[in-house]
Amino acid sequence: MLKVRQQPFKTAVLALVWGWLLVLVLAPNLLVVGTSVLTRDAGSFIALPVNLDSYRRLLDPLYLDVFLHSLYMASVTTLCCLLIGYPFAWALSRLTKPRQTLLIFLLIVPFWTNSLVRTYALKLLLATNGLINNALIGLGLIDEPLQMLYTEGAVIVGLVYLLLPFMILPLYSVFEDLRRELLMASHDLGAGKLPTFIHVVVPLTLPGVIAGVMLVLLPAMGLFFVADILGGSRNLLVGNVIKNQFLDARDWPFGAAASILLTVAMAVLLLAHKLSERRLGNGESKP
C-alpha cells in the first residue's frame, strides 16, 4: 500500500511537469510544424491551404546563401572554440584542485555577465575608431584604420567570445575524468606521446568534444543579436532570418520552416552525442 499512499504527491508532481512540457514545449513545437506547411496571410499570419512552399523557399538561392554562410560561420566558430578550448581544458585539468576551482569560477564569471553587454564591449574594441585601431595606429603599425566591425570576422569573434565556456566546460569534465594512470599505462606499454594522444586521450575525450560542439554549433546559428550588433546587414545567421520572418516580414510559414531546419540540425547532433557515449559504454547511465 506504500505506493498507493504516495500516489497523490507523485501524481501531482508528474501532472505538473508533464502538463508544463506538453503545453509549453510539445504543443508550441507542433504549432510551428503546422505553421510551416501553411500559407502566409497578411491578417492572421497564417492561412490554408497546406503546402510545402516554405520548404521549397529554403532552397531559394537568396536564402540558401544566407543559411550556408551562417553554417560556415558557425562551423568556424565551433572549430575555433575547439582549438582554443581543448588545450585549455587539458591545461586546466592538470592544475591543483583549488586552482582548478578558482579558474573555473573565473571562467564562469563572464558567463554570468549579460551577453549583450559583452557583445557591446567587443564593439568598443573592434570599431573603426575603436581601441584596437587606435592602438595599432598609435604604435605606427598601420596608417588607415582597419575595417573590423561589420565583417564576418567580427561575428565569429563575437560568437567565440560568448560560446567558449560552453566548449570548455564539457571538455574539462572529460579531462577531469581521464585518469592519469591510463596515460601512464599507455606509456608503460611502449606508446609515445603522440600514439598515446591518438589512441587513448582522443577516444576518451570524444564525448566531451561532441557535447561541446553541440553546445556551440547550434547557438552559433541562432544568436541573432551578435550578427545584429557586430555583423551588419551582410553577415546574417539563421536566427536573423527566423526573427525577421516572424517580427518584420511577417512570413510565419517561412520562419517556421527555417526554425525546423535548426531543429533537424539539433537532432543530428544529439544522435551523434548519443552514439559517442554508447561507444564508451555509458550511454545508459546518463539521461
Binding site: 503545453v23 509549453l24 514545449v25 504543443a27 508550441p28 513545437n29 504549432l31 510551428v32 505553421t35 553541440m214 553546445l215 547550434l218 547557438p219 546559428m221 541562432g222 541573432f224 536566427g239 527566423i242 526573427k243 516572424f246 510565419w252 520562419g255 517556421a256 526554425s259 535548426l262 531543429t263 539539433m266 547532433l269 544529439l270
Partner: peptide, 14 residues
C-alpha cells in the same frame, strides 16, 4: 539543447 530561437517562436505562436 534546442536553440533558444526555436523555443521562442514556438511560444510566440502558442
Amino acid at each position: 539543447m534546442s536553440p533558444e530561437i526555436v523555443l521562442a517562436i514556438s511560444l510566440l505562436a502558442l
